[in-house]
């Protein structure tokens, strides 16, 4: 049996549907590390962490920021349920950079009142946003 050549990808967030269409391949930030999906992948269920989702369709690669979610791979179809996701072009780069500075300041302040885990997460989020934004221009 020949493998299919395309995957139907759907990316949804609670607020709206971000993408629906056929792609050649995609990469997602699974909780355990980045993972690539090609057409004909076995059914899979995974949890997503913070990072960037990218998919290639017709030689063109699109990037987006993603923060927590789930990935379901079905035969011929992939569904990403992201808790928060933004297209690279929608990312507010100024806000992300401010968030990065703020988080760094909190982490290095040595203040015992700082929620260390939360600050670390917001730093990771900010860096991922900035990276996804940077990729857009390349």
């Amino acid at each position: 049996m020949a493998l299919p050549e395309k995957i139907h990808l759907e990316i949804v967030t609670p607020e709206k549907q971000l993408f629906s269409g056929d792609v050649d391949s995609l990469t997602v930030p699974s909780a355990g590390g980045y993972m690539g999906i090609l057409p004909g992948h076995a059914p899979l269920l995974a949890e997503l962490g913070i990072g960037e989702i990218s998919y290639t369709a017709g030689g063109h690669t699109e990037y987006m920021f993603c923060s927590w979610g789930f990935l379901e791979v079905l035969p011929g179809r992939v569904v990403i349920l992201a808790q928060a996701a933004e297209l690279a072009s929608d990312i507010d780069i100024k806000r992300a950079e401010e968030a990065k500075v703020r988080a760094e300041k909190m982490l290095t302040s040595g203040d015992p009142g700082v929620d260390y885990a939360a600050a670390q997460l917001s730093l990771i989020r900010a860096i991922s946003r900035i990276e996804a934004h940077r990729r857009k221009k390349v």
Binding site: P14, S30, A31, G32, M35, A42, P43, L44, L45, A46, E47, F70, L71, L74, P75, L81, Q83
Partner: peptide, 22 residues
């Protein structure tokens, strides 16, 4: 379907349910 699980199913399930309520 026989899924592959990237994390233990129970863990995925435990994280999925609160999202469902939300």
């Amino acid at each position: 379907l026989d899924y592959l699980y990237d994390q233990p199913p129970a863990q995925i399930f435990a994280n999925l349910l609160p999202r469902h309520v939300e």
